[in-house]
């Protein structure tokens, strides 16, 4: 493709944290109990924020908004929502 002229130059670029460090929005923190976890990946698929590692089932707290969807959808009750300090 030809070089991008000034008129078409984007004003924004894809970046993590485009809304800031959204982990600071959290009121409750999801905590995974790995003894109960069967690695079914339900939490991973429903997390709107894409902050769950699907293999390790660990959570990136920098951006996790604490919505609690993962805890509600976990079939084994392996995720507890704990109040942030």
């Amino acid at each position: 493709m030809r070089s991008v002229t000034k008129a078409y130059r984007p004003i924004s670029w894809p970046t993590l944290g485009a809304g800031g460090d959204t982990g600071s929005w959290r009121v409750h923190r999801p905590v995974v109990n790995h003894e109960l976890c069967t690695k079914c990946q339900f939490c991973w698929v429903y997390c709107p924020e894409a902050v769950i590692d699907r293999k390790k089932i660990t959570i990136d707290y920098r951006y996790c908004k604490g919505c609690g969807v993962c805890a509600v959808e976990c079939p084994t009750g392996a995720i507890a929502m704990e109040k942030e300090e």
Partner: peptide, 10 residues
């Protein structure tokens, strides 16, 4: 969809 976007939680 990149983590840390501006949508509401959930």
């Amino acid at each position: 969809v990149l983590s840390g976007n501006g949508a509401c939680g959930g």
